[in-house]
Simulated assay, not measured.
Amino acid sequence: MKTKIILETLVLAAALTATQAGAGPISLQGGTVTATYNGSADGVLGLDHLFQPEPGSNTSAIDPAGYPDLEFLTADGLFGFDFTPAGRLDVYLNQPSVEPGQYRLVFDFGASLAQEIGSFTLLDAGAIGGLPTLSVLSGTSIAIDLSSVTWNDTYGMFSAQIGTAAAVPEPGSAGLALAGLTGLALARRRKSRAQR
């Protein structure tokens, strides 16, 4: 009975440690984003510049209220991008259809984030066929490649989540878990000897 209680306690402790160490959504509140489209700053138009093609138009602040206003449009008018303060990116097809081609965007938050970016994952792909390639380039930048995406709906959209870097477990946590496993092994060994 003691062995079972010890084992259950260790499993619960391990689950809590894993949950605490995992990545979570990142806050983009107060963030500023600089974008490029197929390697060109001129390929992206930002909300802060009212989507006008002018110097610096590829930089925009995240809407602090989280309204579904696009932060960026591609200069060719194909795609729109909306970042939420909670780290979600909504990607919109802004035309009835899109021809096959290269559609790669990089978004760089510079030093405007309180935490480093550690993950970039697809949330909802119901309106698309083929999958976008989502990449974390650094602790401050992400890339999205839409070249393989086919759109199931006219003016469709999909969402992705930007997350924090997973915390590195403290050495003490690993040592504590190891000590618990050692104690469990010793308890089993004693019980085995006592039953002989």
Rank of each mutant, 00 (worst) to 15 (best):
L146N: 04
V98K: 07
E54K: 13
P64H: 01
H49S: 15
W151V: 02
I5F: 04
F81E: 00
V149P: 06
A125L: 08
Q95A: 12
A174R: 13
G180N: 06
G66M: 03
Q195M: 13
I128D: 07
A13R: 07
A114C: 02
I162F: 09
P169M: 06
G46V: 08
S138R: 05
I162C: 02
G110I: 05
A65M: 14
S57T: 13
E8L: 15
G39F: 02
L123R: 09
R88Q: 15
A167E: 14
P64I: 00
R189L: 15
G139N: 07
F81L: 06
D76I: 05
L137H: 06
T3H: 04
Y103T: 08
F83H: 03
R104S: 12
A174Q: 14
P132H: 03
A179T: 12
P53L: 10
P55A: 03
S141T: 08
V168Q: 10
R104N: 11
T154I: 14
A13Q: 11
S112E: 07
Q115M: 09
V149Q: 03
L113F: 08
G156A: 10
T34M: 10
A177Q: 12
A127K: 00
L105F: 10
D124P: 06
E8Y: 11
K2E: 15
Q161T: 07
G180A: 04
D69S: 13
N38E: 04
T164A: 02
S57Y: 01
G172K: 13
S147H: 01
S159K: 00
I144W: 08
Q161V: 08
D76G: 06
A35S: 09
Q20A: 14
F158V: 05
L47Y: 12
P132G: 06
T59E: 03
T150I: 10
L178A: 15
K4G: 03
L93A: 07
G130R: 00
V149C: 08
P169D: 09
D90P: 04
A61F: 05
K2V: 15
S57D: 12
L131K: 14
P132D: 02
D42V: 09
F51G: 06
L70F: 10
L12N: 13
V98C: 05
G31Q: 08
Y67V: 15
G130K: 01
A75G: 01
I6R: 04
D82Q: 14
S159H: 05
A194V: 08
A18T: 07
F51V: 03
S148K: 14
V106K: 11
L184C: 04
D124T: 06
E170F: 11
T3F: 05
R188S: 09
N152A: 12
S135Y: 10
T164N: 02
L178F: 11
